[in-house]
């Protein structure tokens, strides 16, 4: 029973992180129509910035805010330097076909990931760093047993829900949110409606950059920081987003918690080596049985 409880707790706190990563992916997908494989690279980079500030005795919260701002800036840079020229080029390129149109941004985002990882390696070396938490991280005590669930985990879950509510309101309740959905779904009709799709897309990269650096900041206390540690989160976050439905914010959060529990139970009851196999099986099962995900709309899989 204790083992079961601790698996639940561990899974929930992991799940919150996966949910944030998945949210970041869904935000760019809905705002710019790209699955951004460089996302956790951006998160890693801004977390390194925060870690450097903390090492120089700035307070956690200063570092926290700086990391979010630099995450947003990185997002904007990715869009302005790579994705926007790519979009302009794609309409006239030699490789223009529907299949390649959806493939080329993926390759570009992998290039960005490579640049960020190499840059982090050059600047901060490959040394693994720890990262502090803003609230205490002592385990919760139930029946005299210490559970793998802390005030920090509660803080993380709280942040996930605030982010979910805020982004959902933004998409459904504001004009900018509508402009963002319209530009991702049909750029031509959006432009003919007077929406500045360039600006809107950059904004979605910024928001997603902030959300993913949030994920980076919150996962790092439990995973140590290195140029490559967050790759895993990206892969699980991607699976979570697909499980939830790539266009659904709520779905991606549900997917994130589901994946967190899955990983935790495989860890506790089976063996850590099986995690990727379990993730692969879940991913393939969802893609075959319900390709639009739990909450996704059918038409979103237009790629």
């Amino acid at each position: 029973m204790d083992i079961f409880l601790s698996a639940i707790f561990a899974g929930t706190s992991r799940g919150a992180i996966y949910a944030l990563a998945a949210l970041g992916l869904v935000l760019v997908w809905r705002g710019a129509g790209v699955v951004n494989f460089a996302q956790m690279g951006q998160a890693m980079f801004s977390t390194y910035i925060a870690s450097t500030l903390i090492a120089q005795n700035y307070s956690y919260w200063v570092a926290f805010v700086v990391a979010l701002v630099s995450g947003g800036l990185l997002g904007a840079l990715v869009d302005l330097l790579v994705m926007r020229p790519l979009n302009r080029k794609r309409s006239s390129s030699a490789l223009d076909s529907p299949a390649m149109r959806s493939t080329i941004p993926v390759i570009a985002s992998l290039g960005i990931l490579g640049v960020l990882q190499a840059a982090a390696g050059m600047i901060w070396a490959a040394e693994e760093r720890g990262f502090p938490t803003p609230v205490n991280s002592l385990g919760l005590v139930i029946n005299g047993k210490i559970m793998p669930f802390t005030a920090f985990d509660l803080f993380v879950i709280g942040i996930v829900f605030v982010t979910l509510v805020a982004t959902t309101y933004f998409f459904k309740g504001t004009g900018m949110g509508l402009a963002m959905r319209a530009s991702a779904l049909n750029p031509e009709v959006a432009r003919l409606s007077g929406i500045r799709i360039g600006f809107v897309r950059t904004l979605s990269w910024v928001i997603s950059g902030v959300a993913s650096s949030l994920a980076g900041l919150l996962v790092t206390p439990s995973a140590n920081l290195s140029p490559y540690t967050l790759d895993l989160i990206l892969i699980i976050g991607f699976t979570a987003a697909v499980v939830g439905g790539l266009d659904s914010l709520l779905g991606s959060v549900i997917g994130g918690f589901a994946l967190g529990l899955l990983v935790s139970f495989v860890n506790v009851y089976d063996a850590p080596e099986d995690i990727f196999l379990a993730i692969l099986i879940v991913l393939l099962t969802v893609l075959i049985i319900r390709p639009q995900g739990i909450l996704g709309s059918k038409e979103v899989r237009r790629v």
Binding site: W29, V34, V35, F37, A99, S102, T103, V106, I235, F238, T239, V242, E273, D274, I275, F276, L277, I279, L280, L283, L284, L287, P291, R301, V303
Partner: peptide, 19 residues
């Protein structure tokens, strides 16, 4: 599958098989 779905799925496969 196609596009980003295929990319992500094959990425997971690349991790799962060696494990």
């Amino acid at each position: 599958l196609s596009g980003p779905y295929l990319a992500g799925t094959t990425l997971v496969i690349a991790l799962a098989i060696p494990s």
